[in-house]
Write a protein that binds this DNA or RNA. Structure first.
Lengths: 131, 131
DNA sequence: AATGAAAATGTAATGTTATTACATCAATTG
DNA sequence: CAATTGATGTAATAACATTACATTTTCATT
């Protein structure tokens, strides 16, 4: 799989997410990129849209935030369904993939003639270190 | 299981959701309750908080909207993990519960000493009728 | 190199979702 | 009845996201 060539804005946003400890909101990404010339939310959202499409970034629906993919080189889309374990105390996010769950949901949808688009799985809670 | 006694505002919000075809945003609930005296978003959010706590209402994280529980009489919390299949075309939402997935996620969390709070599972896509 | 289409960008304005802060009122209990 | 707790009313503001429109860049094709 060949690495997608990113535009300047896409690269900047991806960099910020890659170097971040945890997930970031679109507006905090914007703040971090003011010095690089970013002035408006749309610049961030547009870059994020592409990065999501490329599978380089994930959106955490339960917190309106974005996180770099755990294995961007392989193209996350190849791993099928992506799930997250999110610590509400330290903000740490663990990305994981489970074929059993993926198949189970796939079967459930197929049985009902439901065409599956994006699937969200997010476990909120407290991680071992914060317990 | 005894049915929770709702306050006036909670009852009004629950009613709106119960009689709605599909999920509603907090602000559309507010609009529907103007005639009943609602003036501010907080009145809706406060009622929703309680209804969520009672398990009478669910929040759909992937669309920032709220939906009445499919079986409010039994108290949804009793059913364990709740998942949703959401049609992006007609807005229809199917609530379901799967012990296999629930156990799988529970095991995953336990193995990592992660204390699980709320878990979100939402399948977006197109339902049979809209395909 | 010129050109034309598609993609990306810049900027302002606005729309949508959610919370903070503070005052008041109602229900419950000791 | 006093004290506490939970619920409510209202205004203001914060946080998240999109629409609209003008401009520029990229890149395949001539």
């Amino acid at each position: 799989m060949t690495m997608q060539q990113l535009t300047r804005n896409q690269g900047l946003v991806f960099d910020v997410l890659t170097h971040s400890d945890g997930p970031l909101s679109a507006y905090s990404i914007l703040d971090k990129l003011r010095d690089s010339g970013f002035r408006a939310p749309l610049q961030v959202y547009r870059a994020l849209d592409k990065l999501l499409e490329f599978g380089l970034v994930h959106r955490l629906e339960s917190m309106n935030a974005f996180v770099a993919c755990a294995h961007p080189d392989e193209g996350c889309h190849a791993h099928g369904l992506t799930a997250f374990m999110i610590c509400e105390t330290c903000g740490d996010v663990v990305e994981f993939h489970d074929h059993m769950i993926e198949n189970r949901l796939k079967d459930f949808a197929r049985d009902r003639n439901f065409r599956t688009g994006k699937t969200t799985i997010e476990i909120r809670g407290t991680c071992a270190g914060c317990a």
